[in-house]
Write a protein that binds this DNA or RNA. Structure first.
Length: 559
RNA sequence: AGCGGGGUGGGGCAGCCUGGUAGCCCGCCGGGCUCAUAACCCGGAGGUCGGUGGUUCAAAUCCACCCCCCGCUACCA
C-alpha cells in the first residue's frame, strides 16, 4: 500500500508553539507506523510563508518578507528535525516547484471553467498602500461601542461584522484612515461541487464523526464561492488573464502544497514519474493531520479543488482532526507569553519526553490541557518509573548476573504465555494506530511495560539464579525479548530512545519492522547499559525556562 | 445566534454509536519484594456517571427539555 501522510503547514511568522506540535507529531507517529508495517510512505509538510501577517512582521523587523521566511524556514525545519519528525520532504511555499505547480494547477481549473471574476469594494490603506484584510481594520463596534473591534468580529460582544460597519475605521498596521476602493477578484465556484462533495463525504467511512458532521451541515447550509486572489504583494502571482498584481490567497495555495511537496520529493529523487503513481494511484491513500479549525478546508475546499483540476488526483482518505490544546487552562498567546515554544521546549527536555507527553494528552475527543504538574507526573511515573525502570532492571540484571550476555535458553510455559500476552497488547496498539487513536496506542504500549514488570516480579529471577538456573534463564530471555519487541513499537513514538535502547541491547541497525518484533533472539552481548530516562522536577523546569527567556537563549524568547 | 465538542470517584481520562456487574493512570491507605532510577508487584477505601422528565424488565449508555464549560462561523492563518 502507498500512503501520503501530511500535516497542516505551519505558518511561520513566528516560532511554532506546542499546539502546533500536536499535528506534526501525530503525523510523524502515523508515518513511522506505516513504514514499520512495510507500507510505502511519502510524508510531507512545509512552511506556509505568504500572506499579510508575514508581510507585516517583516515590515516591523525592517527586512523583506523573503529574508524573514528564509530565516524562519530554516529555523523551523531544524526544530522539526530535532523533534525527530521523519518528513520525506519538509518544503516551503516559496519553493519554485510549489509556485509553478500552483500556477499551473489554477490555470487548469480556470480553463475547466470553475473560476469566475467579480468586482468588490474593499478598504484600502493609502499610507501602507495595501488592501486590508477584514481582520486588519480596527474601529468602534456599532453594536456595543467597543473601540478596538476588528473588521470581521467584535471581540467584546462577539458579533460578526463587516469592516465597513465599523465607526471610525483605522488601519491596524499604521492607524491611518482607510478608504473604500474597488478591486477585482477571482473566485472558485465551490457550490458547483456540492453534490459531488456530499457523495464523497458520505461514502468516506473513515472520516471522523466531527469532520463529517461539520462538513455535511456546511453543504446543507449552502456553500459559497471562495475568492482565490488577494491584493497582497507577498505571495504567488495569480496566473489568470488580467490578474496582474494579484496573488493567490495563502490558504488556497498552501493546501496544494500537499501535492507539490510530493512532486518535489520525487523530482529530487530523480524519479519524477513516481509522482503520478502516488498522487493518482488507485492503491494510494492520503491522510491529513489537522486541527479542528481546519476541517472545512480539507474536507470541502481541497477535495473540490482536486476535482476541479480534473487531473485524477486521489481525494483525502482520512482527515484526522484533533481538538485544541490549552496551556494551563488558557489559550496559547504569543503576546502574553502563555505557552511554550518549540525551541524553548527542546532547550528544556529531550524531544522524546515531549513526544511522549504530547501524544499522551493528544486532544482526540475534547480540548486537552497542558499542565506542568501533569506533565511532570506522567514523565516521572509512567515514562521513567514504569517503562524506564523495567528496561533498566532487566538489562542491569543481565549485566550483573549474566556478564551481559543473554543466555540461549528454552522458554518455559509461563514465559511463552507472557510473550503471547505481549503480542495481544501489540495487536491492540496496532488496532489503535489504524484508527488513528494515537493516545490509546501509546497507553497500550505502556501496558507492555506493566506486563514486563509483573512478569519479572512474580518470576523472581534473583532467587532462581541461585536455585533454579534454567527458570532464571527463561525469565531473562523472555524479558529481553519483550524489551526487543517494545523497542520496535517505541520506535514509532519515541525514536531517539528506541534507537538508544536497541544499541544498549547489543542489537544492530535500528529497531526491527513490526513483523519481526516478536522473533526470539538470544546469545546477544549487551553494550553499555544506562538509564534511558530520568525524572524531572517542575521547579527546575520552570526555573530553566525563566532563564532561557531572560537570557534570550532561543529565537522565540527574543521575538 | 447558529453549528460542533465536552460535563463520569480528590486530579487527569476511557466507556456512550452496537442499553444489562462503572474501567484506566495518578494520588491516598495496607501488604509483598529487594533485580532495578526509594523504582516494581498485590490488595483496599473512594463515584446516586451535570439536572429534570421519558422509553425499557433494565440507561453513564436511547429520546426530550434545561444548566454549565470550550471552540468554530468560511477575506487571520
Amino acid at each position: 500500500m502507498r500512503w501520503i501522510v501530511a500535516s497542516a503547514w505551519p505558518y511561520i511568522n513566528a516560532v511554532p508553539h506546542l499546539g502546533t506540535l500536536i499535528q506534526v507529531l501525530s503525523s510523524d507517529v502515523y508515518a513511522r507506523y506505516r513504514r514499520k508495517k512495510g507500507d510505502s510512505v511519502v510524508f510531507v509538510s512545509g512552511s506556509d510563508e505568504h500572506g499579510t501577517p508575514i508581510e507585516i512582521e517583516a515590515i516591523k523587523k525592517g527586512i523583506s518578507p523573503k529574508e524573514l521566511t528564509d530565516k524562519m524556514h530554516s529555523y523551523v525545519s531544524d526544530l522539526f528535525e530535532r523533534f525527530g519528525i521523519s518528513y520525506d520532504n519538509y518544503t516551503r511555499t516559496e519553493s519554485p516547484t510549489h509556485v509553478k505547480f500552483v500556477q499551473e494547477f489554477y490555470m487548469k481549473v480556470y480553463e475547466n471553467g470553475h473560476i469566475f471574476e467579480k468586482e468588490t469594494e474593499q478598504l484600502y490603506c493609502p499610507n501602507d498602500k495595501m488592501f486590508l484584510p477584514d481582520r486588519f481594520v480596527i474601529g468602534t463596534c456599532p453594536y456595543c461601542g467597543y473601540e478596538k473591534a476588528h473588521g470581521d468580529q467584535c471581540d467584546r460582544c462577539g458579533r460578526l461584522l463587516n469592516p465597513t460597519d465599523l465607526i471610525n475605521p483605522r488601519c491596524a498596521i499604521c492607524g491611518a484612515e482607510p478608504e473604500l476602493r474597488r478591486t477585482k477578484h477571482w473566485f472558485f465556484d465551490l457550490p458547483k461541487f456540492s453534490d459531488k462533495l456530499k457523495e464523497y463525504i458520505e461514502s468516506n467511512e473513515q472520516l471522523p464523526d466531527n469532520a463529517r458532521a461539520m462538513s455535511l451541515s456546511m453543504i446543507e447550509d449552502g456553500l459559497k464561492p471562495r475568492s482565490i486572489t488577494r491584493d497582497n504583494k507577498w505571495g504567488i502571482p495569480a496566473p489568470f488573464p488580467g490578474a496582474e498584481g494579484k496573488t493567490i490567497y495563502v490558504w488556497m495555495e498552501a493546501v496544494l502544497g500537499y501535492v507539490s511537496a510530493v512532486k518535489e520529493h520525487f523530482e529530487r529523487l530523480g524519479k519524477p514519474e513516481e509522482f503520478n503513481e502516488f498522487w493518482k494511484g488507485k492503491d494510494t491513500k492520503s491522510i491529513y493531520f489537522i486541527g479542528k479549525d481546519n476541517i472545512p478546508f480539507h474536507t470541502l475546499i481541497f477535495p473540490a479543488l482536486l476535482m476541479a483540476s480534473e487531473e485524477g488526483y486521489i481525494l483525502p482518505y482520512n482527515v484526522a482532526s484533533t481538538e485544541f490544546l490549552l496551556f494551563e487552562g488558557e489559550k496559547f498567546s504569543k503576546r502574553e507569553r502563555i505557552g511554550i515554544w518549540l525551541d524553548e521546549a527542546l532547550a528544556l527536555l529531550p524531544a522524546d519526553y515531549w513526544r511522549f507527553y504530547m501524544i499522551y494528552i493528544r486532544p482526540e475527543t475534547k480540548d486537552a490541557n497542558f499542565a506542568w504538574d501533569d506533565m511532570v507526573a506522567k514523565i516521572n511515573d509512567e515514562l521513567n518509573d514504569t517503562l524506564g525502570n523495567l528496561i533498566h532492571r532487566v538489562l542491569s540484571f543481565i549485566k550483573s548476573r549474566y556478564d551481559g550476555v543473554v543466555p540461549e535458553a528454552q522458554l518455559d510455559e509461563e514465559s511463552e504465555e507472557m510473550l503471547k500476552e505481549a503480542k495481544e497488547i501489540a495487536k491492540r496498539i496496532e488496532e489503535n494506530l489504524e484508527r488513528v487513536k494515537l493516545r490509546d496506542a501509546l497507553k497500550e504500549f505502556l501496558e507492555m511495560a506493566r506486563l514486563g514488570n509483573r512478569f519479572f516480579n512474580s518470576r523472581e529471577p534473583w532467587r532462581d539464579i541461585k536455585e533454579n538456573r534454567a527458570r532464571a534463564d527463561s525469565t531473562v530471555v523472555a524479558s529481553f525479548n519483550l524489551l526487543r519487541a517494545m523497542a520496535c513499537y517505541m520506535h514509532i513514538f519515541m525514536p531517539f530512545s528506541a534507537e538508544k535502547l536497541w544499541r544498549m541491547m547489543g542489537l544492530d541497525g535500528e529497531p526491527a519492522p513490526l513483523s519481526d518484533a516478536f522473533n526470539i533472539v538470544a546469545g546477544v552481548q549487551l553494550r553499555e547499559v544506562e538509564p534511558l530516562f530520568h525524572k524531572v522536577s517542575k521547579e527546575e523546569l520552570q526555573e530553566k525556562l525563566e532563564e532561557i527567556r531572560e537570557r534570550g537563549e532561543v529565537l522565540s524568547a527574543r521575538e
